[in-house]
């Protein structure tokens, strides 16, 4: 579904991505972990058609980026650590607006089903500004899946969520996975990454340095492995 080959991205003299290779199969849930500045967000923004690559190939559902971004956009949904919603509009108005942008026909129905699915029907007439962080993130999921995208992209969606809200978001994500959406999640939370997804890729300094399948490894083993892969040759420089 998502095919990335030799992807590079430079900003002026700084190189953020140095030849990323990643293949995400249809219906697969892949998590990308890495420390701050590893290039995770840049990678996701390129896949989300928000950023143009400097080199390499990216295809989504067979469409090459950035030349066929217009065709790809219909099939992707994005959840980022920003809400991507209008704080001054109500929950229903926000969803209605995005439903119109996607040219969805039976909007009223689609919007109320979406609100019900994320448990926000009671708050549909309230301004998003008055929502808690967890509610905003649920509404964000509803927004990102309104047009039934094949691919769901998530950039640190757990930022700022408390235990309960995170658990609820976990359940929502797994449900999206069950109904067959391809999911690419980006997080710095190793445990969550390995427990949620089918496969975890470690991104370090602009390159994917290791990939593991969840069934092959336990969460603690994965954390040890990550430390080795990322800091292995620099241990002496790091405190602790």
């Amino acid at each position: 579904m998502i095919q990335i080959k030799g992807l590079t991205k430079q900003y002026g003299l700084t190189t953020v991505l140095r030849g990323v290779n990643l293949h995400v199969r249809e219906g697969e849930f892949v998590t990308l972990v890495g420390s701050n500045g590893a290039g995770k967000s840049t990678l996701l923004r390129i896949v989300a058609t928000l950023l143009k690559p400097s080199g390499g190939e990216v295809t989504i559902g067979g469409w090459p980026l950035p030349s066929h971004a217009h065709n790809v956009r219909r099939h992707i949904g994005l959840v980022s650590h920003h809400a991507l919603l209008y704080g001054d509009m109500t929950a229903a108005e926000n969803l209605m607006f995005f439903a119109r942008l996607y040219g969805i026909d039976n909007r009223e129905e689609v919007v109320s089903t979406a609100l019900k699915r994320v448990g926000l029907t009671a708050r549909r007439r309230d301004a998003v500004r008055t929502f808690s962080r967890g509610m905003v993130q649920r509404l964000t999921i509803a927004r990102a899946t309104l047009h039934e995208p094949d691919v769901l992209l998530l950039d640190e969606p757990f930022t700022g969520l408390d235990q309960d809200a995170s658990a609820l978001l976990n359940r929502l994500l797994l449900r999206e996975h069950e109904i067959g959406r391809t999911i690419l999640l980006i997080t710095h939370d190793l445990i969550r990454g390995i427990s949620l997804s089918d496969r975890v890729a470690i991104l370090n300094r602009g390159k994917i340095v290791h990939t593991v399948t969840r069934d092959d490894i336990s969460a603690t083993e994965f954390v040890t492995l990550y430390q080795q892969v990322v800091h292995g040759d620099h241990v002496a420089e790091l405190p602790g």
Partner: peptide
């Protein structure tokens, strides 16, 4: 200002528009 708070502009940019 309303486009930049919470960046709904990104959601518009990934829409087929």
């Amino acid at each position: 200002a309303s486009e930049l708070e919470n960046r709904p502009i990104d959601a518009m940019l990934i829409a087929p528009m």
